[in-house]
């Protein structure tokens, strides 16, 4: 068994001198930001790492606009989707703010659970708007289709270089001392070139990540009719999805059942006409109570 732990041996040597400098600097430093803001770090990192697409984007003048007003879950690995991505964060990195400042920065008043539903006073943060540009590469798409045995699927050459743009946020997060988190965002704007066959593209994209022809057609059509911010959960992840009927509407519950019980989390995705919510809590009861206390 200790052989297994041996694979964790670090392949690096600690940089003592540098760490000592950091230690001295941090003797009076503040504590780090909460984990819920990790997506922001991801955005920042991606911004640095992004491949700037040399596409016909600049010449793409006519756009069709959709609204992504819902979260949805799909049980495939979307990381296999071959698109080039360029992310821009349009604002400062988040900091803890008051409710008043959060409202001002986000442009909407965040909804918070009624007092007492989640324990303690939340820390609020605003994540600046993010623009995500994704460029379609026909050759990459064809290669992905071949790799899943769907080489017969036609990919129109005219898609090459097409730019898909998603504008997300601002988002507001509330992080409670009991581990409950509420993330909310207004419906997301999604743009594609005018005349772009979104349903066909979505169908091909879903085939490329491994869905059957029939499932891909259904999922592509559903996405085109009512675009969703798709969250992918691999089929073998130990989670259970359940449609919920809350006091205030429908929601999707994601419950974990693997690992140590104390580490499991319950997440509720809820969409309203003007807000998309992600609520995560240590128990189903808390998550439901929080979700039901929101509009």
């Amino acid at each position: 068994m200790f052989d297994r732990l041996a694979v964790l041996e670090p392949g690096w040597n600690p940089e003592v001198a540098r760490a000592h400098t950091v230690l001295q600097d941090r003797l009076v430093s503040r504590r780090p930001l909460s984990w819920i803001w990790a997506p922001v770090a991801v955005v920042a990192v991606c911004f640095v790492l992004a491949v700037i697409p040399q596409t016909r984007a600049a010449a793409q003048e006519a756009w069709a606009r959709w609204t992504m007003g819902r979260f949805d879950v799909i049980r495939v690995d979307l990381s296999k989707l071959p698109v080039q991505t360029h992310v821009t964060m349009n604002g400062p990195l988040p900091q803890r703010v008051s409710l008043e400042d959060a409202t001002k920065a986000a442009g909407f008043a965040p909804y918070l659970p009624e007092s007492g539903v989640a324990a303690g006073v939340p820390e609020l943060m605003v994540i600046a708007p993010v623009t995500v540009d994704q460029t379609v590469r026909v050759a990459d798409l064809q290669a992905a289709l071949r790799s899943v045995g769907a080489a017969d699927v036609q990919v129109p050459a005219s898609w090459d270089g097409a730019l898909l743009r998603t504008e997300i946020g601002p988002m507001v997060g509330a992080d409670y001392p009991d581990g409950t988190e509420v993330l909310q965002v207004r419906p997301i704007a999604f743009y594609a070139p005018a005349g772009f066959a979104l349903n066909t593209f979505a169908e091909v994209a879903f085939r490329a990540v491994g869905l059957s022809a029939r499932d891909a057609r259904a999922a592509g059509l559903a996405f085109a009719i009512h675009p969703a911010w798709l969250l992918d959960i691999a089929k073998d992840e130990p989670v259970e999805l359940q449609d919920l009927s809350l006091r205030n509407g429908k929601a999707l519950l994601i419950e974990e059942f693997g690992g140590e019980p104390a580490q499991r989390r319950t997440t509720i995705l809820r969409n309203t006409t003007d807000r998309m919510f992600v609520i995560a809590a240590k128990t189903r009861e808390i998550a439901v109570a929080v979700a039901e206390s929101l509009p």
């Binding site: 984990w35 819920i36 790492l49 993330l183 911010w229 580490q263």
Partner: peptide, 18 residues
């Protein structure tokens, strides 16, 4: 990190990078 990964999938569809 494991919890964070669960939140990161909120953005991951949009944030694919090499």
């Amino acid at each position: 990190q494991r919890r964070r990964e669960r939140v990161e999938w909120l953005l991951q569809y949009a944030l694919r990078t090499p």
